[in-house]
Structures are given as structure tokens and as C-alpha cells.
Amino acid sequence: MSPRSRILALAAATLLLSACGDDQVSVYRIPKEKEPELPAAAADQGGQAAPAEPAPGASMADTAVPTASGDGLSWQAPAGWAQKPAGAMRKASYSVPGSDGDSDLSVTAFPGDVGGELANVNRWRGQIALAPLSAEELDGAVTRVDQGGLKVTLVELSSAGDPKNKAILGAIIPFGGATWFFKLSGPGTSVKAAKPAFLDFLHSVHPQ
């Protein structure tokens, strides 16, 4: 082989090496994995049978995509709340004690606007069997607060007429290209009693 053809062969081999590797379909068998933990959406539906296919709104919030690893929020939880393992989807998880049974507090964050405020409020309404709101009705149903630059949208939902009487106290905070959800859900009376603590907790939320 002449020196020239040797160099050509070497260059061709390098190009080939760089071209392969990333374009292959791979097939493998693995032990069944746990489905990713459903977000609070499905977890607090109590005894109700979960729909065969999750509602699209819920599924979008159910994304496994991590929040942009950029800025986050931090907070101070009241002493009486017990921290629970956060699981795959949640940023944090607390058990909030109450007279009528414990409530669940979840903190989640997902990239983008996750479908917008209306879709998320209606998702929460759906979880406690309330009819969805229209875009016009939304403004009357939420409270907007500016907390040190954070735009907090507060939602208070309760299915008082329902014998199960469930309630949700939620806050939606867009921050750093993501949307953060703070949600307290549980038996109506427990959630109502925990409202001052929840509001204090929200006041402690600030950028990291």
C-alpha cells in the first residue's frame, strides 16, 4: 500500500467510525418497571376508579421531563407537617395532619406553562368532581397575589355538597421558565383548618 492510499484509508476509517453508533435501533428485555408515580392528580382520587386513560391535562403535568435544572424555589414548611418521600414527580411532599384525616401537600414543577392556568385549575376541579370553568369564569374563581416578584395564583376548591367533601387549596407560580404547583388536598374540614398554615407556607416561598 502506498503512503498516500494508507492515509486515505485511515481518513475513511475515521469517518466511518464517526458515522456509526447513534443511528441503530436497539431491542432489549428488562424486568417490568414501576409506572412513574402518578402526580397528586390521580393519587388523591380516593376510591374512585381511575379512568382507563388519564385525562390529557393530567398527563401533561405527569411529564417525566425534569424542570430546567436552573433556578428553583425554596420554602419553609410548618413544624407540624411531616415530610414524605417526594417520589419521582414531586419536588417535595408533606403530610398535613387534620381532624378529619391527613391532607397531602405536593410541590411539583414542570417546564413551560403546562397548558395554562385554566387547564390546570379545571384539572384540579375535575379531581374533586367539580364542573370545569370557562375562561370568563376563571378570574372570579382565583386570587392573584404578587409576592416579592413571584406571581402567585391562589385557588380554593371544595366539593361541599358531595358526601365525600374533598377540598383543594392550590397555588400556581410561574418561575424560571417552569410552572410550580403547590397543592394541599384532602378531606374538606382538614384542608379548611390547615388554610392559615398553608398561606404561611406560601409566604415563605422564595427563589433559591
Binding site: D22, Q24, V25, S26, V27, R29, I30, K32
Partner: peptide
């Protein structure tokens, strides 16, 4: 078990 076919 699950058989996974992963397409890049």
C-alpha cells in the same frame, strides 16, 4: 418483563 424497541 418488557421488551423494549428503542428507535433513536
Amino acid at each position: 418483563t418488557d421488551e423494549v424497541t428503542a428507535i433513536p
